[in-house]
Write a protein that binds this DNA or RNA. Structure first.
Lengths: 190, 190
DNA sequence: GATTCTTATTAAACCAGTTTAATAAATACT
DNA sequence: AGTATTTATTAAACTGGTTTAATAAGAATC
């Protein structure tokens, strides 16, 4: 669990005692490509850390799939919206590659936060990080054209384009496959 | 500061001792309509609670004003993005009505969190709340048409339409004033 | 109360996406 | 390898916005 430990300590100092206390609650799980970590209607009680692999976090509404995020190595993830509010999820989390994760239940996480002020701070800071990412996402959606968002994704997460089919990338960008294809054509003509 | 105290306790239990310790650091400030709490290039070291009034949180890029949020009574606010990362802001926070706020510096807030595990938890939970709001915002931007977003705003924050000129509402919705006008016309014709 | 400034609407031309459908290319399956 | 399925591209018609500019209505100022 060295990778997890390292990631936690990239947020804030955590003593060995507190870290050991925290890590004991994490369990390792594996998911084959095409299996689901979460489906609509289910409650999600787990918080995940992606060790290896990739999941797609998406909704289907009226037959339309909308990818909200791809989580790969080093990401913390869950359906945070349903998790926080303890309401049934409206989302899918699907392994789009064979994936290995560490997971901790909400009750155990609360135990950890009660025990350790340092780890509660980690919790606050990781929420902040999530905030920053979401904030950038909102600004991207509001201020950039679809073409600009495509180029930005290409720059920031180039490996995604090898791992993920283009129609899912299109969905992530809020486009139809046709729309993305047009953008790519337009760009290649320059 | 009863309103502030009440709002904090709506998140989590806080003992009188801890609350008293925390509240001593808040200062009351007033801003006349048209004055700025923040301008681009400035660092923001303050966290605000809106007692009465309303501010607009926006950017100007290439002459284009983009309203990100309106904060009125009962909202906690700051330029959280610049605040968290301790980088110069790229945003304006402008009082669009005479406003009264409570404010606490980042250093003081950290003192409070160090002193009180309960208030650190309030910090984490209020970050979570912010997350939920941002998440809904992203989903709105991705999944709803402009018309639907207009109707939803009309429903959720009707008072805004009395307080805020339409061209700022348009900006908040990511539209031009012309675009919003067209939507309103389309709707009124039904 | 008349003038000026700001805000909201309308019209016309335009554009970046959509939908639908056909086709081509790549991948998986037996 | 040959067939079936999935994924990506292209074309054509359409749509909901944009920009620019003119006009109308409302609010502030002298």
């Amino acid at each position: 669990m060295e990778d997890l430990k390292k990631t936690i300590r990239s947020f804030t100092d955590v003593s060995d005692t507190d870290m050991e206390f925290g890590l004991q609650f994490f369990k390792m799980k594996t998911f084959k490509k095409g299996t689901f970590l979460l489906k609509p209607g289910q409650y999600i009680d787990d918080f995940y850390f992606m060790k290896t692999g990739c999941v797609s976090y998406y909704t289907i509404e009226g037959g339309v799939t909308r990818v909200m995020e791809f989580f790969n190595e080093g990401y913390f993830f869950t359906d945070l919206y349903a998790y926080i509010q303890e309401i049934p999820s409206e989302c899918y989390i699907e392994a789009i590659e064979d994936s290995t994760v560490y997971t901790i239940s909400k009750a155990d996480q609360l135990k950890v936060f009660d025990y350790s002020h340092q780890l509660e701070r980690f919790g606050r800071l990781s929420m902040q990080r999530t905030f920053v990412i979401n904030f950038q996402r909102i600004n991207q959606l509001r201020n950039l054209s679809n073409q600009e968002r495509y180029l930005q994704l290409l720059e920031k997460r180039p490996t995604l384009f090898q791992r993920v089919p283009q129609y899912l990338i299109a969905s992530y960008l809020g486009l139809t496959p046709v729309g993305l294809s047009k953008i790519r054509k337009r760009l290649s003509q320059k």
